[in-house]
Structure formats: C-alpha cells, structure tokens
C-alpha cells in the first residue's frame, strides 16, 4: 500500500483497510524519529484490542515507544518476519514493515482517524512549532 492510501493516528500509526481488515504499521516519520529499531513486542494473534489501547512496544537503542491500536477488533495476523527482523521497519515502513492485521469490530471508528492529507498537515504543524523555538534560539545567540 502507498502512504497516500492510509489513515493515521496522532501517535503516528498508519492503517490500511481492505475488506474490513486493517493492516497496521508506523509512519515513515515515526520510524525516522525512533532511529534504529531493535525490538518489537506485538500482541498475539487472536487477541482482542480496543481503539487507542497500548498493544505493544517499539524499541530503539535508547528510546521506547508504545504502539496504540488505531481500531477495535481481533488480531488475525502478526508479521513474524518483522519481529525477527525489526530493522526492516525503518527501511520499508509501509510494505514489508507492517505489524499486525486486525479484523474491525466497528468500522465507524475509522472516522476519527487522520486522512493522509490531514496527517501531513499535522506533521507540518509539529515541525513548525519546533522551528519557531529554534528561531527564537537563533535570536538569543546573537
């Protein structure tokens, strides 16, 4: 799937829905911020999850981030390849870097997620905030 076809959370998960099954991963931006990903802890197949529950962790060398479920439903598949080869997330977050597939229990929940364009704007706002601070710094320097 391409980034444009996905929906997103504020916590930087992407979600791609086809036939009531959601494939879930983390955005390229999130993978870049975390750096070298070294370990993934994902929910077990068959477990039930609720929207925005922490369902796993993503570990880099010196940071760790929680993984939140963008939707409610049942986990029907876990990407074992990515668990044994977590560095692939950084290289290819959208194709081979997917984490789990969830069978949706409430498709209505998708409404609260960002579209690609909305997510892009959201990232833009966050970056702008940072730059604003940096600019202030520049002035202080002089």
């Amino acid at each position: 799937m391409s980034p444009e076809e996905c929906l997103y959370t504020k916590e930087h998960e992407w979600i791609y829905v086809e036939n009531n099954v959601a494939t879930i991963g983390i955005s390229e931006y999130a993978a870049g911020e975390l750096g070298d990903i070294v370990y993934l802890e994902l929910p077990e197949a068959d477990s039930s999850v609720s929207q925005m529950d922490p369902i796993g962790t993503i570990e880099a060398v010196k940071t760790v981030a929680d993984l939140y479920s963008p939707v409610s439903g049942q986990v029907i598949e876990v990407n074992e390849d990515i668990v044994s080869n977590p560095e692939a997330v950084s290289k290819d977050p959208y194709e081979n870097g997917w984490f789990i597939k969830i069978k949706l229990s409430d498709p209505g929940e998708l409404d609260v997620l960002f579209s690609y364009e909305e997510y892009r704007d959201y990232l833009g706002e966050q970056e702008a905030e940072k730059h604003e601070e940096d600019d202030m710094m520049e002035e202080e320097d002089e």
């Binding site: 750096g35 070298d36 070294v38 370990y39 570990e59 880099a60 060398v61 010196k62 977590p86 560095e87």
Partner: peptide, 10 residues
C-alpha cells in the same frame, strides 16, 4: 570508536 549499539540490542 563508536560501537554498534543497535546490533548489540538486536
């Protein structure tokens, strides 16, 4: 020199 911490963690 700098050591490969990511490889060590994996």
């Amino acid at each position: 020199r700098r050591l490969d911490e990511a490889a060590a963690s994996r």
